[in-house]
């Protein structure tokens, strides 16, 4: 496509390189930026640069942070006997929102995926093993995809022999939803994972 400006063309290219953004949306965003006051773009650009310069991995849990260790890892109020392993930084946010988990996290940054060439070396697995000597329980909170499942299996085979308790999050019926309206696959899994009372 032929734009009337090279700068516009470049901006559209960059936007459309982002996930979920197609060419049309990229164009809309570009023209939106052009219409906004110059302050907006300046702020936008500064924020973008800060993001990459200030944010890095926490050396303990590998979540994103500006200060190392991150606020969670440096909090004295948390229980250092429990570590919850998640796939992505997003998952930490989700679990933190519950305000029910007071241990530490460990972000793997992905799951095993031979087809995409993802091996344990590409994940923060070694780093996990290095920090769990004083841990009593590791909770594996990976997604229920086949790849997440395989990673759960893999990690539990590595950690269990160290004499550490390994657990995984349960899958079941969402709270507040009635059995009648639960989808059948969820219901059948929940049945399978029933617990004695």
């Amino acid at each position: 496509m032929q734009y009337t400006s090279e700068a516009i063309e470049k901006m559209v290219e960059i936007f459309s390189a982002l996930p979920t953004i197609g060419r049309k949306t990229a164009q809309r965003l570009t023209f939106y930026l052009l219409r906004e006051p110059a302050d907006f773009s300046r702020n936008f650009a500064d924020t973008l640069i800060d993001l990459k310069e200030k944010v890095h991995y926490c050396s303990k849990c590998f979540n994103y942070t500006e200060n190392d260790p991150c606020p969670i890892c440096s909090s004295a109020k948390r229980d250092n006997k429990i570590i919850c392993v998640v796939e992505e930084p997003n998952d930490v946010l989700a679990i933190e929102k519950t305000s029910e988990f007071f241990g530490y996290y460990h972000v793997l940054h992905g799951v095993l995926n031979p087809l995409d060439g993802v091996t344990p070396e590409d994940l923060k697995v070694k780093e996990l093993l290095q920090r769990i000597d004083h841990t009593e329980e590791v909770i594996l909170a990976l997604n229920s995809s086949v790849e997440g499942e395989a990673t759960t299996q893999y990690l539990s085979r590595l950690i269990k022999p160290l004499g550490i308790k390994v657990s995984r999050i349960a899958s079941g019926i969402p709270i507040g939803s009635s059995l009648e309206f639960s989808d059948e696959a969820t219901l059948s899994r929940a049945m399978e994972c029933r617990i004695a009372i």
């Binding site: 995926n113 031979p114 087809l115 086949v146 790849e147 499942e149 395989a150 989808d183 059948e184 696959a185």
Partner: peptide, 19 residues
């Protein structure tokens, strides 16, 4: 008949590819 069956079948297919 069973959504659970579809899920298991999809998992099997993915798992076989990876394996």
């Amino acid at each position: 008949v069973s959504r659970r069956y579809i899920e298991e079948a999809i998992s099997l297919k993915k798992c076989l590819k990876q394996r």
